[in-house]
Each structure stands twice: as structure tokens, then as C-alpha cells.
Amino acid sequence: MRQIPYVMAINEAFAEEMARNDKIFIIGEDVQAGTFRATTGLVKRFGPDRVMDTPLSETVVAGAALGASMCGYHPVADFMFADFMWCAADEIFLKTAKWHFIHGGKVQVPIVLFGNIGGGARVGPEHSQCPESVVWHTPGLKLVVPSCAGDAKGLLKTALRDPNPVVYFYHKRLLGLPGDVPDGEYTIPFGVADVKKEGKDVTVIATSYMVQHALAVAKELEGKISVEVVDPRTLEPFDIDTIVKSVQKTGRVVIADEDTKRCGVTGEIAMQIMEKAFDSLDAPIQRVAAANLPIAGGYMEQYVLPGPKDILAAIEAVAKK
């Protein structure tokens, strides 16, 4: 299968879906140039009406997208850094997430809320977060967190066909990572977790960039501890069944996610496992997540962010005999 970088897979998904549906347009700050290359080149093909640069105002990006979506368009609101969605919190959390419900189902707001997440680029506390938990916490928003090029493309195409608001978070450290991407048309449904690697001793549930760390650690442990890596791929909808099946097999669980540990994604997943598979657990669940601190600037960030060493330690702790 051909291999292309993660960000190119995203770019390809935009191009294919924009050609397929002329109601799709991208709006954001510097989307014509494309800060992370996710939207680079699209303006040449689809013109400035469909790849629209805005002033530095996330309120404008989110508000315009919301209005357009109610008029029959399918906008992509690009916040560049997902951290800055918070500037448009009213538009996103109070309106986009709720208006379908407020209007008794008569109004649809098909928007892709597009943002780059994650640390590892030493760009400080306002440009390094993985704000998944707040989005997941909010009813009315779907949440996609792809971990590889193939998933990034297939899931973005599904997002661009979904009649609901979908938050799509892609990770900085994955941008250049090549991965298998099938030729031709394909989509990946929401709510279907992917077992990235089978194993029998420990289940590692990982999201986004953490999946790549988990796979590397699993490889390192081969012959010692057999690790199964499960990637939920979308947090809303969430495929707990695949996870339960894995937990029933291994009885031992590590959850790795880059959002802050407190009230984070790892806690929610752990609780769902306890509710659905308590009798299969053979050891307390271990969480790997960012420390309860703002992501530190520069080289200090490594002391806040979770990494392969933390995943390794958690697997060893949970598998301890």
C-alpha cells in the first residue's frame, strides 16, 4: 500500500470531499497558506471563496461557520491550534453543540471544528494542549482523534459527511509520520475502535500520538509482556465494546492520553471499564496522561507531558506479578 504523511492524508481528504460536495468550505486564520500544511494548496484548486482567510478572531471563524451551516453549507472551522477554540467558547459550546436540540431537531449544524493539538513542539502552554476532555464532556459534539495517516483520511471524510458538529483534532507530532493510505475512495465509520496490535497480557488503550508511543513500547516488550494496543479513534461516539472484549482477555489495563490527567479522557475510559468489565479486571487500571499543570514552555515540557517511558512503567506496574 502507498505510504503518505499524516498531514498529506488530511489534505487529500479535504480535496476529495470538496470536489465531491461544493457546499464544503474552509474558514480560518491563514488557511490559504496552511500553517500545518493541512489546507495548503486547496485555494488554488477551489478558490478563495471556499478556502477563506479571516482576521485573527476565533469568534468570527466559529460564528460564521455556524451561520453558514444553518444556511445549508458544510463549513470547516479551522482554529489552527485547538487551544484557541476557547476564544470561541460561546459559539462552539453554547450554540454549535446545542442548537440542533434547542430548535427541536429542525436545524442541522454540520460543521467540522478543526484544530491541531498536542505538545512536543516546545511552543508553550497556549499552543500545546490536547483539550479533548472538555469537548468530550459537552453533549452535542462528536470527537475524532486519529493516530495515523490512514485513519486521519478516512475519519475526516466521514466527518465531512456527518450532519452534526464534529470536532477533529490532529496531532502536531504526527504531521510528518508516513502511514498506509489506501488508493481510491474509502471512509472509516465513527464509533469503531481499532486493535492496532493484538496481545494477551495487558490492554493499552491509547489515543492520538499516544498510540504510536504505545506501539513502540509494545514492540520493545515483545517476548516479555504481550501488549494489546486499542485505539478508540473517535471518543464520541465511543466504542466501549471492543475495549471490554480486550479487557476480558487480558484483565489488565493501561490508558494513555495526552490531555491533563485530572478529569481527563483516561479517567472517563477507566470508569466505563469499571462499569462494564469490573469482574474481568485482575489489577487496578493505570493512567498515563499529562501532569496536572499547564504544559511547561521549552525543554521543561517533557516533565509535564506523558511519554513512552511512562507507558512502559505503567504496563510493568499493571503486569507485575
Partner: peptide, 17 residues
Amino acid sequence: APAQSTERVKISPVARK
């Protein structure tokens, strides 16, 4: 776990089942 035992037995859920 036997009620007369004063100390709680540490046991994993799957082992208990």
C-alpha cells in the same frame, strides 16, 4: 470474604469472581 476475618483480603475482581 469471611465476615469473621478482621483484615480485608486483597483480591482482584476477576480472581474474586
